[in-house]
């Protein structure tokens, strides 16, 4: 199976917005910020709540369940960076956004 998976067309997501995707049976939160794309697991490492339903402020996504805040660039929990949500590399090619789905599970 190819690790790079087509996610969306670039024009489907405005800067500063987020989108929930299902890629290779995994729910992925895709964020476009300052022209770059960031992909992380959509499951909060705390109790598995869907991060896509939380507020995005800059690079920080706040879990809707218990307000745990994560940096979408690293997946790190701000209050304790040892706790991380899996993040995945992204790439843009010919107006299409791809996510490398060989990140840690």
């Amino acid at each position: 199976m190819l690790p790079w998976v087509f996610a969306i067309n670039e024009n489907e997501l405005a800067d500063g917005e987020k989108k929930l995707l299902l890629l290779e049976d995994k729910t992925i939160l895709l964020v476009r910020q300052e022209g770059n794309y960031y992909a992380m697991s959509n499951k909060c490492p705390h109790m598995g709540c869907p991060l896509s339903k939380g507020n995005l402020e800059g690079f920080i996504i706040k879990c809707p369940c218990h307000d745990w805040k994560f940096d979408v660039r690293s997946g790190e929990f701000l209050a304790a960076p040892e706790i991380k949500a899996p993040v995945y590399d992204t790439d843009i090619s010919e107006g299409k956004v791809f996510v490398k789905m060989d990140g840690e599970l």
Binding site: P45, H46, G48, A80, E82, I83, K84
Partner: peptide, 10 residues
């Protein structure tokens, strides 16, 4: 089980 995954890295 959920909490185990949170406390272990701490």
């Amino acid at each position: 089980a959920m909490f185990q995954r949170v406390i272990d890295p701490l």
